[in-house]
Nucleic acid binder design. Structure first.
Lengths: 338, 338
DNA sequence: TGCTGGCACTCGGACGAACAGAGTGCCAGG
DNA sequence: CCTGGCACTCTGTTCGTCCGAGTGCCAGCA
């Protein structure tokens, strides 16, 4: 176990490095933080911290920088979550309150997060499978052509075209619409498959094919692959990283373009509470020099999706965590109201 | 007027510079292109081209690079549009055919364009005001709460919550839905305002307030500001630009984040045919060292939106234009089918 | 046992000189 | 009007030198 002072030294190193972006030496440390001991003592502590793997030197005769392990300890034990100030909270609320629909909420959230944290923001759309059905609408566009529109309690809307095997009358359509809604309205999407399983049986033989087609299209839209969407923003903040660019920024941009990667990233994060994944803790290689701070958000107590930011491992963790938490909270409120 | 050979020299300079990313000198030119004259002659031609402002040298004793004006001449007079090969065309079609809904079409188009051109792709959603109404749906969520869902012929769906001034019965809602659709279905969005103007008059006094509220919400969604959406992709390609990064890439990323800027950019482009804006021809300062190739696309003969790519002025114009044109064509087809 | 001041050592980054190479402009001759 | 030749100008690179920051270690002190 590390002594109290050594932890303080580590904390000081992280804070200074995050601020200056430069390796920090023993002398500078004692000057900026009054640790009450001499540089020599700090050097000894640093040697220990280095042995333990919490810090490293880029080369002999340079200062130390925290390792991923060092950041991990910092986040877990040494730093709290810095709460937003009252004006900041007010600004968040005002900004989000102006949204007109779900797309707008998500877009605003992304911008907000990016601005607050000065990093790349990622916001997942509310998951379909974890939402409840508000309404299913069926529209007849042509005798054998139906449009299926799904609306969730979080305001998300999905639509699909369905080509029917046989013409389908207006009356049958109204019938199907009514029966479908009475079964699934207000229920969780995850339960829909069981709820509609035996629905075709109540219909005339000639309509059953169409009913089944409609239902299977409905179920398809719930498949994981289609259901997850997300929005990102603040990529311009990547240019603040370091000045060793292309190598750093390239794989990050690539990762951000691959929604699959991002979704996996968010998926791996814990389901409740805030998750911080530091450097190599991220499975995806391109993100090995970045940290991801994410948290679930939802209209009720339950999380319907996640949001977070991606930034350099050298980031202001307390501030970032505070911003992420605050934004998630307000987005949840907004969704609950709509 | 420039002699034929001088134009050839300019063409060669553009081609070589695009290929190598390095200033091209007289000797290298005569070696790679058989112009049939000596380097000295080419030098004289270059001096003329430089006087006319088509090329420039970064510093004395370096080769020449094309100026914006040079690229302009190249695009207008010296280069055609390089058509896609048959396999490429097939790949485009296959890739786009798999889309399940409009979001998917747009998302796939962005990816495709980014891959084909290895640049940043921008795709605008079909404009509301230029589309026609397929259906307007009204759903009662609570006694005084209605959800408005707009569906266009291009598959775009918009929804809004409406808080009614008074409770609104299921019967009145059905009535409104029917009357509204009979008036606007199949009509252009741009005409909707006039078409619904006198609609409240047909209703009972107590319902008129609600009807007006619903209608004004409907009209709001058609306002320019909300109606334009777009998607971008391929930002990772920015890292291929030059190696003088941060300065170049930063403002571009910032511009791309600002949808307003992009929309304006696309808006300025000509309405029909392909538009190429080179370097300083772009009004937005951050894009002064980039070129934008854009073209309208649409389900019929008429353009409902635009798509294009943003890349360095030093880009393969014929290839890029070919890809943009081909993709626009196929997207139009897909939209017409759905 | 733990802290401190002192000291020799290492290494990277900055600075400057010298150099090679690419490319130009100009000129005289075909 | 084209060509070969020539002197000139710049840039980028390489190499050596120097400086400073920072370290590790050690002996002394509480």
């Amino acid at each position: 176990m590390l002594s109290e002072r050594r932890l303080q030294v580590l904390r000081a190193i992280v804070q200074d490095y995050v601020g200056t972006e430069e390796p920090v030496g023993s002398k500078a440390l004692t000057e900026r933080h009054n640790l009450g001991v001499s540089p020599a003592t700090v050097r000894n502590d640093m040697a220990v911290l280095e042995d333990e793997g919490f810090i490293a030197q880029p080369h002999t005769s340079a200062g130390r920088i925290p390792t991923d392990k060092g950041y991990r300890l910092f986040v877990d034990k040494l730093a709290g979550v810095k709460p937003m100030t009252a004006p900041e909270r007010r600004a968040i609320q005002n900004f989000l309150d102006g949204a007109v629909d779900l797309d707008d909420v998500v877009a605003r959230t992304v911008r907000l997060l990016a601005q607050l944290t000065r990093q790349v923001a990622v916001v997942q759309y509310p998951s379909l499978t974890r939402s409840t059905v508000r309404h299913v609408e069926l529209l007849s566009l042509a005798p054998a052509r139906v449009m299926l529109v799904l609306i969730t309690d979080t305001g998300r809307v999905e639509q699909r075209m369905v080509d029917c095997p046989a013409p389908f009358g207006e009356a049958s359509l109204a019938d199907l619409r009514a029966r479908l809604n009475s079964r699934v309205a207000g229920r969780r999407f995850a339960d829909v498959p069981q709820l509609v399983e035996d629905l075709p049986e109540g219909f005339d033989v000639e309509d059953r094919g169409t009913v089944s087609t409609v239902l299977s299209t409905l179920l398809e839209t719930l498949v994981e692959e289609n259901e997850e969407r997300l929005m990102i923003g603040g990529t311009a903040n990547l240019t603040r990283f370091g000045h060793d660019f292309p190598l750093t920024i390239r794989p990050v941009l690539e990762a951000l373009e691959e929604q699959v990667v991002l979704l996996k990233l968010l998926g791996e994060a814990g389901d409740s509470g805030m998750t911080v994944r530091i450097g190599h803790e991220n499975a995806y290689e391109g993100l090995n020099s970045t940290s991801v701070v994410s948290v679930g958000y939802g209209s009720g107590g339950e999380a319907v999706a996640k949001l977070g930011v991606v930034g350099p491992t050298r980031m202001d963790y307390p501030g970032t965590m505070g911003a992420v938490r605050a934004v998630a909270r307000y987005v949840g409120q907004i969704l609950a109201e709509s």
